[in-house]
Design a protein around this nucleic acid. Structure first.
Lengths: 343, 343
DNA sequence: CTGAAAGCGCTTACAG
DNA sequence: CTGAAAGCGCTTACAG
């Protein structure tokens, strides 16, 4: 059942009556080939449906023509579930790779894995796209080492001043401000924040800080007693909201650091007899597909995952070509639905 | 900024005082190595953080150690959006590949692309996982050619009698029966079907047929005038439901061929002033993540995407090893929520 | 514009 | 158990 052995460039050369080197030149689009010769070779190539052997080519060129997308998540290493926010980037990352003529490898990684070793040193990939929430401080050192090794990578996440390597992320502070301002405009005064708000989770922290700024502009403050840690998952959101309720402090709005947290929180709120948005406004962050199906539909801060995916790949390719590139912060947008009580 | 040139097996050999061949044997886990020698080599390997060059290894072995997951969708070739049903398989496919020590390549494909050529002939992948809804009849010939070429592949889809190659799919007829039986038990008598129900879309057809059987068992019939074509998307579901309503025939239930169709249909129904589930029961198929967030939460037929992903990879690897494998049909399960009016 | 030749870094018969 | 050697299928200086 093994197929008839594949044609090689030497076979093509014989059939076209040229040297193997010339076949290679034709296929790599070299200009150093006579038009006639090129035609002849191309005809044979088409006829035999010949394809350049990727490994031989990569071995010789010392370039794999492949990018690796590594997903790492602290919480559930054995889960086959992927954070929907990253999932929504997958499509545009895949397409952007195709546009650059690159193949895309995808893999789950633990914090303990040797990312550069497994993908770059083994020549499997020319560059890495790092996606994943998790304790930033915990893998900062790891990123530092990647930089020292000269590994080419780009990560999605907060764009921080002294970070190792490049990031594509969104305007988390700006997004937080949009959320806070919306809540303020609706007359909310006691805003709870669900999600970690420490330097371990800089994206969440910036969202918190942005919201705080918006409240301050309105002469209000964020009460730290209304902040509950939560990683980005529905269950964590549910637990955090229950904890918030248990604290028995008054609040009239919940700003969830992510939509998943917001979804879990709405469930907990409803279970406790609190009405959304009548009793409490809920606003999320991300605008994942599930957000608009929530009940009530979730008002949230949109992050442009399509553009994010493209930028991630474009930036990485710039690095792979050996050119300089910079971190980028994407603007966010408020998406008003029903969960805050607007309209 | 290029990193210091990578160590090769020859470097390791020199440092360990053995031949390059021995280093290779140690790294490929050969038993033909003295325990002492092995220790010595492994120590050097660890110290230099040496990794076998993937391309040199694959070129020599004539095996890529990689599987390719090809997603093809007719409708929106330029969209970066992926059908959520396939997205939910991605996690388990990724993990299953890791378990088999295989890398996973992911790519969008057009029906016109040369799948085998681009991935197998070029040695990029040892086998293909084909995912995608689309006109079965249109690519049946293509699958036939893959078989003739000896390309190793497995697809997700209907398990049909004379199909080319192997499929992993679910019991579509059984699932259709479960849907029909549930509707019947609820007293519904005029069941509409949203989705293509022809041999071009065998999965949808089987679901239709299964539902029809369940109705027949109860002395009822499916009225073909209540069937409206729709591909698996929310917009198509919305349009199909509008078309159904426009036909002005009485119906008290909608069986959507997929959850996406059901979601779009519920929206159209509501817009037309019909209440779900009071006026019309709606049941979907797939149980995508969005289903339980729908309003009302969508009753649907569950397909085990986690197991599907594992089976897809396991079966493909069996083929890659040159062993015989078979198509598999997975059981479905009724998931009762609120959209049919049960409870 | 074209060909002969070297070499990318491995794996695996072949000898010993 | 180990080493010397061939060769996987390309790309790319080097000559002409």
């Amino acid at each position: 059942m093994r197929k008839k052995s594949k044609a090689t460039s030497l076979d093509i050369a014989h059939l076209a009556g040229v040297s193997q080197a010339t076949v290679s030149r034709v296929l790599s689009g070299s200009t150093l080939v006579n038009a006639e010769t090129r035609k002849r070779v191309e005809a044979v190539v088409r006829e035999l449906n010949y394809k350049v052997d990727r490994h031989a080519s990569s071995l010789r060129r010392q370039r794999s023509g492949t990018l690796a997308m590594l997903l790492f998540e602290d919480p559930t290493p054995d889960e086959s579930h992927i954070n929907p926010f990253f999932l929504s980037m997958l499509g545009s990352i895949t397409r952007a790779c195709a546009r650059h003529g690159q193949d895309l490898l995808i893999s789950f990684q633990q914090l303990s894995d040797d990312w550069a070793g497994d993908y770059e040193d083994s020549m499997k990939a020319d560059g890495l796209i790092l996606l994943g929430y998790g304790d930033y401080l915990a893998y900062q050192g790891k990123l530092q080492k990647l930089v020292e090794q000269g590994t080419r990578f780009v990560r999605w996440g907060a764009v921080l001043p002294d970070q190792p390597g490049l990031s594509i992320g969104c305007e988390n502070i700006g997004g937080g401000r949009q959320a806070g301002a919306h809540l303020v405009a609706l007359g909310r005064k006691r805003v709870a924040f669900l999600g970690d708000a420490s330097t371990h989770y800089p994206e969440f922290l910036d969202r918190f800080l942005g919201c705080e700024q918006a409240l301050r502009d309105a002469g209000l403050t964020m009460d730290r007693a209304l902040q509950v840690d939560a990683e980005s998952s529905e269950d964590a959101g549910h637990a955090a909201a229950r904890e918030l309720i248990a604290r028995a402090l008054p609040f009239d709005a919940v700003f969830a650091a992510s939509d998943l947290i917001a979804l879990g929180a709405m469930r907990a709120l409803t279970e406790s007899g609190l009405r959304v948005p009548e009793d409490v406004s809920v606003i999320g962050f991300d605008d994942i597909p599930m957000a608009r199906f929530a009940h009530p539909p979730l008002t949230t801060i949109f992050q442009d995952t399509k553009q994010a995916g493209e930028l991630l790949v474009d930036t990485l390719m710039t690095l792979v070509r050996g050119e300089a590139a910079e971190s980028i912060r994407l603007p966010t947008a408020l998406v008003v639905r029903k969960s805050c009580g607007a309209e």
